[in-house]
Write a protein that binds this DNA or RNA. Sequence first.
DNA 1: AACCGCTTGTGAACGTAAGAACAAAGTCGA
DNA 2: TCGACTTTGTTCTTACGTTCACAAGCGGTT
Lengths: 224, 224
Amino acid sequence: MSERRPGEIPEATVARLAVYLRVLTGLADDSTVTVSSEELAAIAGVNSAKLRKDLSYLGSIGTRGVGYDVTLLREKIASSLGLTQRRTCVLVGVGNLGHALAGYPGFSSRGFTFVGYFDVDPGRVGESIADSQISDISELESVVEANGVSIGVIATPAEAAQTVCDRLVDAGVTSILNFAPSVLTVPGNVDVRKVDLAAELQILSFHEHRKSRGLGDGLVESVG
Amino acid sequence: MSERRPGEIPEATVARLAVYLRVLTGLADDSTVTVSSEELAAIAGVNSAKLRKDLSYLGSIGTRGVGYDVTLLREKIASSLGLTQRRTCVLVGVGNLGHALAGYPGFSSRGFTFVGYFDVDPGRVGESIADSQISDISELESVVEANGVSIGVIATPAEAAQTVCDRLVDAGVTSILNFAPSVLTVPGNVDVRKVDLAAELQILSFHEHRKSRGLGDGLVESVG
DNA sequence: AACCGCTTGTGAACGTAAGAACAAAGTCGA
DNA sequence: TCGACTTTGTTCTTACGTTCACAAGCGGTT
Ligand SMILES: NC(=O)c1ccc[n+]([C@@H]2O[C@H](COP(=O)([O-])OP(=O)(O)OC[C@H]3O[C@@H](n4cnc5c(N)ncnc54)[C@H](O)[C@@H]3O)[C@@H](O)[C@H]2O)c1
Ligand SMILES: NC(=O)c1ccc[n+]([C@@H]2O[C@H](COP(=O)([O-])OP(=O)(O)OC[C@H]3O[C@@H](n4cnc5c(N)ncnc54)[C@H](O)[C@@H]3O)[C@@H](O)[C@H]2O)c1
């Protein structure tokens, strides 16, 4: 039934490809030449069958009886993720979190170039940040358009997030990473991913709750 | 076939409950008394059938013909997520990102109390942070044990993450939120959630790539 | 007290994802 | 050149998640 067009990679697989890529970079740094699905899966913390299936969407890359060529696999994954070209990004909202993001070298090393940092607070505009400085939000559109920016990162308070998002989208941004705890509405051609840290803690809280309830129901049952 | 024990809430649902809770808090602040699944779903950005099914795992909470009582629903969700008791947390690694996390008031307001901030850098130990100060990592175990800490947040470099994780687990922590780009190995009773920001950008990159390829394949096809 | 309109809760259909298992396809040594 | 051995790529099965569609249930109205 479920024929998948070649080149159509499942969403769950895409998320894992990023992990494999990071692991492979580590292996390449250790001068590892080939790696088996079993080894790679162990390091990446996934099932080896799942890993092989994930990689099979990229074509037949491995060598039976041997494994995968680390360099080749890395290139294949990078190319599937569209990382052969550097992507330009902007960051809007350079507060606590924005400063941490702006100072993080891991984005640049993985192919993302931040061409602008924007804030509405006049007290922050002009401040040096990374190898650049904070611009006034009014310059957002011109920078986005001049650089063909495709990814916008939002780290403003929740109240401002939708407005900022609308401006980014109008200026031509087609992917948004949102750190504000708010649901963004965008046109169909725009992708949004959210990072909701409080929700992460709440999910952990749920499991804590479940674990302690299980203890009460199961182990203390013997009291009756 | 797929009988689900009462009280067994699917993982995907748990993640959304946190979102509903946030939305409901906003509605409660606006003094909204009742809300229909349609309205709530629209605000939360999900399908209304999915929302109703999610809520149905918590029992029969709504009133047919009317909707859900905002206050009651909020309490039900909070209780399902184990948020009736405040949870104690520690943060390990107070660098760029750690500072942002420590200064964020949204965790406390949602029921999470940070009882310790730890770093290995002697230059940072003693520094004031939030309403507390940074402790030396050597004090980790005693603080965790004294406070019955259940959640540990790791914001150290990747190299240190597994070691820190092991120490947290040995001290009794059973949930970990990991910001370092590394795969953590833990015993079966410990839950780990990871936040991988570079991966988020790479996933967006994938979709950018796909969109531009689609443009080439589909719309420019008319050149032939 | 009977009806009507509205909204929930859920069964059934569909789609996506995970995992076990194994045939196919390669390497390497003799 | 052949055979033993290793590991991939894929098929099949089972589990999980989403969406549709509608009967059941409730409040308000006459
Ligand atoms: N700091 C954290 O660890 C953390 C954790 C979880 C979620 N968040 C969320 O991330 C977002 C940012 O958090 P933060 O701690 O950095 O907050 P912050 O208040 O320190 O920073 C917000 C920044 O956005 C700027 N800003 C406000 N409106 C703007 C606009 N319209 N255009 C451009 N800039 C604007 C402000 O001037 C400020 O500099 C918030 O939505 C917060 O809820 C932060
Ligand atoms: N800053 C970001 O925006 C960002 C984005 C994505 C991922 N990350 C990841 O989050 C982690 C932290 O990032 P950062 O930018 O804050 O780095 P950072 O170098 O600024 O901070 C790391 C802190 O951890 C401390 N540390 C090191 N080893 C430790 C140990 N064994 N025990 C306790 N503390 C220790 C260091 O002293 C330092 O203060 C890194 O793994 C990074 O890859 C950060």
